[in-house]
Design a protein around this nucleic acid. Sequence first.
DNA 1: ATGTGTTCCTGTCCGC
DNA 2: TGCGGACAGGAACACA
Length: 283
Amino acid sequence: MPELPEVETVRRGLQPVMEGGVIVHAEVRRPDLRWPFPERMAERLEGQRVERLRRRSKYILIDLGSGETLIVHLGMSGRILVSGGRIGHYHHAEPMAKRHDHVVLHMADGATVTFNDARRFGAMDLTLTESLDRHRLLAGLGPEPLGNEFHEDCLLKRLRGKKTSAKTALLDQRVVAGLGNIYVCEALHRSGISPTRMAGRISRRRLRDLVVSIRQVLREAIEAGGSSLRDFRKSDGEIGYFQHSFEVYGREGKPCLRSGCDGCVVRIAQSGRSTFYCPECQR
DNA sequence: ATGTGTTCCTGTCCGC
DNA sequence: TGCGGACAGGAACACA
């Protein structure tokens, strides 16, 4: 699944297709993803003008003329395909409906936006735009890692007293919102912090480096068009496709890429998920 | 309150 | 090739 950079890439790709346009028809092909779709979702989408596409953490927020916002989360395997419409770049022929195409939005200009999610860990909900912040999925989220509120003191405060590992703490969306398994590994490697270090025991100085590393890693990935692995493969009209190379993620047994370090990358499990790091230069 | 393990679902890959 | 098991980018939830 997409982490913050991939979601941002999808948002940017979707913007010219949807923003300012009108949803003339919504096909909802099953009753749920992770949770049931909201009541009468199709009817509430149909005829609505799309005012704005925003992102909060890994959520895409689609503001509608009705004063409601469609919240979209791609989960682990969610993807969005675009076809038709007047925008040259996305001009594909009408594709055949594929397995796991769960929701299809038809725009007034002929473009279609298809939400495909094999594992169905994704989610959609509709809620009033004015109370969006209080929505159960968004209310508890920590700061945006690329925003101004995210800095050294903020992290210090949020990690203070935490007995869990640095890795696990950074995956917690209440600490900072938008990081996932890949970019946590990458940011920790860049800042030379061991993923196993107790989160509450990272010095202020190293937290400063960590903040910088997180921002760099995310910015670079967004610039590169959002990195992607198996679930974000290139296909007709799919947004978010990109091949990225990581310094530690997926590189078990390979040499550490930090200049001057002669260690090699190991893989361990932390709270049931793979962590990749270099025990030589991450302390 | 905080930390950890389980769970949802399908697809892919790797070893036998 | 077929089959079983491990694993996959998330995160809510139940429980100690």
